[in-house]
Simulated assay, not measured.
Amino acid sequence: MTEEEAVQIAEYVQAACPAQKFGEYTPDVWGEILAPYDVDEARAAVIAVARRQPFVSPAEIVTEIRERRAERIEQANIVIDGDPTHTGAESAAALREIIRAAGDGLLGPASIRASLGTAERPALPPGADHGPYAGRAAAVRAAIGKMPADRDPTVDPRGRACRRCGAAPGSSCTTGDRRRRDVHPIRLEDTQRAAAGLPLLDQDAAEARIKAAAAAALARSDDQEQEAETS
């Protein structure tokens, strides 16, 4: 926000809250506090706060902006599985840019179940290539372009659809509406069998096999604990 825009926000607050007192240097102080934020976001925050109470402080404007940005980021349901060819710094930079774009409203609400395949990645809204967000729009397109579009289904479990939750190739598995850090066991089983050139198992049979293996591993762990206690 520029100094001129900070003056506009102060005048905007004064018009919305006529009983609020402003001094000669009020716009200067507000300008320093609100400098990191966009003038349009600040104006929308003033309206929201003024609807609730008769006075508006810079801290309340900042709080309102942050809450709305956090809300937009949450609704965007950003899912990035990463690209093994990128360095940690490149992956972090891409993620920061996409999160920032979601906070700016350049990425609208999306279902966590939406595929992140090339043809189905979220489109930026009309007009995003113009105005103050033109550079940000280009940057977020570049960051989205770095997301892996294709994965080898015989190596990477996320390269194939999940038969348990219906996650599309390239997307993470979900439990309910929450993204899982790992994939469902059936998805991993399918990947391992594909790598070995074996046909996929019936889903019920595969899950029964996985549960049996897990139970056997738990039993071995219990036996080891009992041996440790008696030794």
Rank of each mutant, 00 (worst) to 15 (best):
A89N: 10
R52A: 12
A44D: 03
A143F: 01
E71I: 00
P132Y: 00
K146G: 13
S57G: 06
Y12N: 12
C17D: 05
A205E: 15
R52V: 09
P122I: 01
P122E: 07
E227V: 11
P84M: 04
D177A: 12
L34C: 04
L116D: 15
A48R: 12
P153Y: 04
E5C: 07
A214F: 10
Q14H: 07
P185A: 14
A101N: 03
A161D: 09
G197V: 06
T85A: 15
S231T: 15
R52N: 08
A137Y: 09
A134M: 07
D150R: 10
A167Y: 03
A196N: 13
A139W: 02
A128H: 02
T87H: 13
E67V: 14
E60H: 08
A59T: 09
R100K: 12
A48G: 00
A119N: 11
Q192P: 06
A101H: 01
R72H: 09
A138P: 08
E227W: 11
G131F: 07
P148E: 06
V79C: 15
G82S: 12
D223Y: 14
D222A: 09
A213C: 07
I73P: 12
E71G: 10
R209C: 12
E120L: 15
T175R: 12
R209M: 15
E229V: 13
I61A: 02
G131E: 08
G103V: 00
A161R: 03
F22N: 01
I78H: 11
L116M: 14
V13G: 00
L107E: 05
D104C: 10
A35I: 04
E90T: 13
E67L: 14
I98T: 01
A42Q: 01
I80R: 13
V39T: 07
D81E: 15
R113C: 07
P122Q: 07
A196K: 15
R72K: 13
A44L: 06
P153Q: 05
S57E: 09
